[in-house]
Design a protein around this nucleic acid. Structure first.
Length: 808
RNA sequence: GCGGAUAUGGCGGAAUUGGUAGACGCGCUAGCUUCAGGUGCUAGUGUUCACAAGACGUGGGGGUUCGAGUCCCUCUAUCCGCACCA
């Protein structure tokens, strides 16, 4: 049968689905001691069409899943849909269709495309977050977290559009205006729900060390969490009250010449009530847009009428409002030490403040020995901190701060999980009862794009009795951030139809942690921090075991077109469907794996690469077609011709190498090049080799099994042609035969003074002394040895090299 | 500015523990087959001088070593992340 992927692939896909070969076992079906492998890809958003990034991601996961199945693992390889969120709601506004209809249609479309790629997902475990049998468990978990005190309510500013009467996401706001309508957007404080992620800050940071993740992702998370050890210190205001600061350099306390407070600091806000110049300064700072603040680092300050008293000297220290102090880090107040902090230095120079040196060290910003610091003079920085904390008593203490913030999960949107709380006139904010879940999204809403969240207009949704006192009350109309949906979905895959719990612990214990998680680098912080946070909460709720959900993480590189990201607006999208309909899924898969190491970008400059992949598959098909099926037994090693032995050695070395690449190294592009090398070796077998039929049959059998994870459709076809029954994907992965890993003769490279001068062949059994002798006798080397004194001869382990050192 | 990474032919890349640099593929060149080719096959393809042997060669410079793409120091360039974090 020739290479006809367009007709063959759908046929083979049907056989797979009918055979149930993609199905993952329930925990009860696993034999004791069974090896499991959980292969996870990041939950896709059903935007409408599959793009090349998906193809790369899913192919990689599929290669791993198929390899592990053949290696005898029970494999979990699921897929689902991150199907709440803004685009569906925008589509509803634009086209006047319900977000659910738009979402369902997109899922159908994309599912069909994924199936055309031959990805081995267990479709029985498919989940979609917009369905109430998924989001009810978001609500259930929210209630559990509420009980434990992991949820709280607080004010936070949002992007508010007065004309639309709605809240906008950051990406919807461009130049301070709604990107769709151009209406102005302002900042407005709103009471919202938060998860207490900071409670786990230390654990989230410390557990990173044990994870097999890319170093850059771990670094990004460390920075994001931003743990900083230091001390807090309360200064007395001259006119009563205190200002607390956080500092990593308490040892520089005697160098304080000013206090810098954020313009949003309560002390400044209060002072501004009676100080119009200060008020004007604060307004001026507030008027600068976010982007401008980020790009400009000009320090501005305004001296207030206030002063604090130095806790040791009692001297008056002036208080400034300053634009470079952030209200949401530390305490929103900084003790200004211009001699030993770069920013404070710049500020002090600008406003003419004294810059007294109090530390003696190599560089002005380093730790060292204290000078001009009263009774602490002469102490080392580290000791001074301890001594000062002890002296300062109640007003100071060692402490730690984090950049990580609590996770604000409220969204003033329709298309998300309703937050299951109720506002009661007498009881306040009350959680819904678990037995009343799910709190479903109502259908009686209109999507106008104007006015408050559609939930606020639905009487059927709003009116509800108070779960606590039973009197009429109103439902919460905020919905959850969609990151909640993606923070535990991989556990729902393990038990997707459970109606009692989000998932049974037996299932999670059987499969967790995820062995390999593959996705885009864009999720390095948000998703991968939230997911880790949730897992720790689930563990503490007794629902899951183990500290971390994802043992190994791979972030695949992007697929570019001529050096830039493929996007609709640039019109440079290469549609996977188009490629599949020209070359077949196998050729596309092969190219995606081969083109570059997985973490690097692939630039899709043209179709040459995929032509090459297709050519390789055609050549293989011909090779199998030309090979007359042979039932002959493979002869023993000493009966084989040299060429036959060479081929079988290449075969077994390839088995060993590819197994290692897939199992330990997670290096995929070399798997394809290994297959190509082996196919070249197959082609080199002479037509008149004495045992050609038996040797080829043996080698092709192993070859087809090894190509099966990458090009599974053609592998099935060739597998049948080789006379094998059953599915190739269910065959076992070949084992390297130790009898064929070494050749009879081995090449020894001869170096003289580090330069390669010759090569000699010796029997594989040759001793060190024999190798040494053969090398010294090598004529090419002799030229460089005559008339020189041999200083030493080095024979490194492995026996493949002899290095001769000469003098003169 | 801070942090992380990367640098190998015309291109994508390989070299797993310090041991033959350039596997494999793309592209290119020549020939054959077919000549309707966006087909198939064979040979060649780091640079340079070439009959050969050789010399040079993994961003630049230095070092360790019998031996360095790989380890150390230093410089340069590119990419990514963060962005006044007290």
């Amino acid at each position: 049968m020739p290479f006809q992927p367009l007709t063959q692939e759908p046929e083979i896909q049907r056989r797979w689905l009918e055979s149930g070969a993609f199905r993952a076992q329930r925990s009860g079906e696993l034999l004791p001691g069974a090896k499991t492998f959980y292969m996870l890809v990041m939950l896709p958003y059903p935007s409408g069409r599959i793009h090349m990034g998906h193809v790369r991601n899913y192919t990689l996961g599929d290669v791993t899943a198929r390899f592990r199945r053949m290696k005898g693992y029970a494999v979990m390889h699921p897929i689902g849909w991150d199907s709440f969120g803004l685009p569906a709601e925008n589509a509803a506004i634009k086209h006047g269709i319900h977000p659910a209809i738009w979402t369902r249609a997109n899922i159908e479309e994309m599912k069909g495309q994924i199936q055309k790629m031959g990805i081995s997902y267990d479709w029985d475990r498919e989940i979609a977050s917009f369905q109430d049998d998924y989001y009810r468990w978001n609500q259930w978990l929210f209630l559990k977290m509420w009980e434990r005190g992991d949820v709280f309510r607080a004010m936070r500013t949002v992007n508010w559009c007065e004309e639309l009467g709605t809240v906008l996401a950051n990406e919807q706001v461009v130049d301070g205006k709604d990107e769709r309508t151009g209406f102005p957007v302002t900042q407005k404080p709103l009471e919202q729900y938060f998860f207490k992620t900071t409670k786990y800050a230390d654990e989230l940071l410390d557990c990173l060390d044990g994870l097999d993740w890319p170093e850059n992702v771990k670094t990004m998370q460390r920075y994001w969490i931003g743990r900083s050890e230091g001390a807090r210190l309360a200064f007395d205001l001259e006119l009563g009250g205190q200002v607390e600061v956080f500092t990593t350099r308490l040892d520089t306390l005697f160098g304080v010449t000013f206090m810098a407070l954020s313009t949003e600091h309560p002390v400044i806000e209060k002072a501004a009530e009676t100080d119009s110049a200060l008020k004007a300064f604060c307004d001026q700072v507030a008027a600068v847009s976010r982007e401008e603040r980020l790009t400009s680092d000009i320090k501005l300050g305004h001296r207030t009428a206030l002063s604090v008293l130095h806790p040791f000297t009692g001297e008056k220290v002036p208080v400034f409002a300053a634009n470079y102090v952030l209200m949401d880090y530390g305490t929103g107040a900084v003790m200004g030490v211009p001699a030993h902090d770069e920013r404070d230095h710049e500020f002090a120079e600008k406003y003419g403040l004294p810059i007294p040196q109090v530390i003696d060290s190599a560089s002005e910003w380093d730790l060292g020995t204290l000078v001009n610091s009263g009774e602490f003079t002469g102490m080392k920085s580290e000791d001074a901190v301890t001594a000062m904390v002890a002296q300062l008593g109640e007003r100071a203490g060692k402490t730690t701060t984090y950049k990580l913030k609590d996770w604000g999960l409220s969204r003033q949107r329709y298309w998300g999980t309703p937050i299951p709380t109720v506002h009661c006139g007498s009881c306040g904010v009350v959680p819904e009862k678990a037995e009343n879940l799910p709190v479903r999204l109502p259908e009686d809403v209109a999507f106008t794009g104007v006015g408050p969240s559609p939930l606020k207009t639905s009487a059927s949704f709003l009116d509800t009795p108070c779960p606590s006192c039973g009197r009429p009350a109103r439902r919460e109309t905020d919905t959850m951030d969609t990151f909640v949906d993606s923070s535990w979905y991989w556990l729902r895959y393990l038990d997707p139809r459970n109606t009692e719990l989000p998932f049974a612990k037996a299932e999670s214990d059987a499969w967790m942690p995820v062995d390999l998680y593959v996705g885009g680098i864009e999720h390095a912080t948000m998703h991968l921090i939230y997911a880790r946070y949730f897992y720790k909460v689930l563990r503490d709720l007794g629902l899951a075991s183990g500290p971390e959900p994802f043992q190994k993480l791979i972030c695949q590189g992007m697929v570019l077109k001529d050096g830039s990201k493929m996007s609709k607006s640039k019109g440079n999208i290469v549609d996977p469907d188009e490629v599949i309909s020209r070359y077949g899924a196998d050729a596309l898969r092969l190219f995606m794996i081969f083109a570059a190491p997985i973490e690097k970008e692939i630039d899709w400059t043209g179709f040459e690469g995929i032509e090459g992949a297709s050519r390789f598959l055609k050549r293989l098909t011909r090779m199998v077609e030309d090979h007359a099926h042979s039932a002959a037994q493979l002869p023993s090693r000493d009966q084989l011709s040299t060429e036959e032995k060479t081929l079988l050695i290449k075969l077994n070395q390839t088995i060993a190498r590819l197994t290692d690449d897939l199992e330990r190294r997670y290096q995929f592009n070399t798997v394809v090049s290994g297959l190509m090398e082996l196919s070249n070796a197959l082609g080199d077998l002479p037509a008149d080799a004495p045992h050609r039929g038996a040797v080829l049959q043996y080698a092709l059998d192993a070859f087809v099994r090894m190509m099966s994870p990458v090009a599974p459709h053609l592998a099935e076809q060739l597998w049948s042609q080789l006379g094998q029954q059953g599915l190739c994907m269910q065959a076992t992965w070949p084992e390297a035969d130790p009898a064929f890993l070494e050749a009879d003769e081995v090449l020894v490279v001869v170096q003289v003074n580090g330069k390669v001068r010759g090569r000699v062949t010796v029997p594989a059994s040759a001793t060190e002394a024999q190798r040494r002798e053969a090398a010294l006798a090598c004529p090419e080397a002799q030229v460089h040895l005559t008339g020189k004194e041999i200083v030493k001869v080095v024979l490194p382990p492995g026996g493949k090299l002899v290095s001769i050192v000469v003098k003169g």
